[in-house]
């Protein structure tokens, strides 16, 4: 219960703006899961988290808030820092690289079956898995 007190402001904000919210405490870790209607709502929650636990360094909270798109994502921009994005045969860095998508290239999202790896197709027709963190949905 102490963790829920520590993160009370965050839980209150999540209750107001997040659907399918689940707040659970297990083995000394607080888990907050849910679906935010937009990126701004999600960013706001992460800002509150950063305020309550500067730099997220306590390691006692696992917050998994996904943004639910109103329409299925079909196109995404490669938002790496500057490098190309590897397209792999399967979901995992142990999988062979079958192609590359250029920095800021727009790729077609074939499937978002996992939160971490999306199946994409490049402009050159190369198809494979890319790490979702480096893909930003295009509206």
């Amino acid at each position: 219960m102490a963790l829920q007190d520590k993160y009370q402001e965050l839980i209150t904000a999540a209750t107001a703006g997040v659907s399918n919210l689940q707040v659970r405490e297990q083995e000394g870790v607080l888990y907050i899961d849910g679906e935010a209607p937009d990126g701004a709502t999600k960013d706001k929650l992460w800002a509150i988290y950063d305020k309550l636990d500067p730099n997220f360094l306590s390691g006692d909270l696992v917050m998994n808030i996904n943004v639910v798109a109103s329409a299925p994502v079909t196109k995404a921009k490669v938002t790496t820092e500057r490098s190309n994005l590897n397209i792999r045969k399967g979901p995992g860095t142990d999988q062979p690289v079958v192609g590359k998508a250029a920095h800021h290239e727009i790729v077609t999202v074939v499937s978002q079956s996992s939160d971490l790896w999306w199946l994409v197709r490049t402009e050159d027709g190369e198809e494979g898995y890319a790490y979702a963190q480096y893909l930003t949905p295009e509206s």
């Binding site: 000394g28 870790v29 997220f56 306590s58 390691g59 006692d60 696992v62 998994n64």
Partner: peptide, 14 residues
């Protein structure tokens, strides 16, 4: 941290 929180670990030692 946002990416790692999707992995549902038993927390962190940072």
């Amino acid at each position: 941290k946002q990416t790692l929180d999707k992995l549902k670990s038993k927390g962190y030692d940072l």
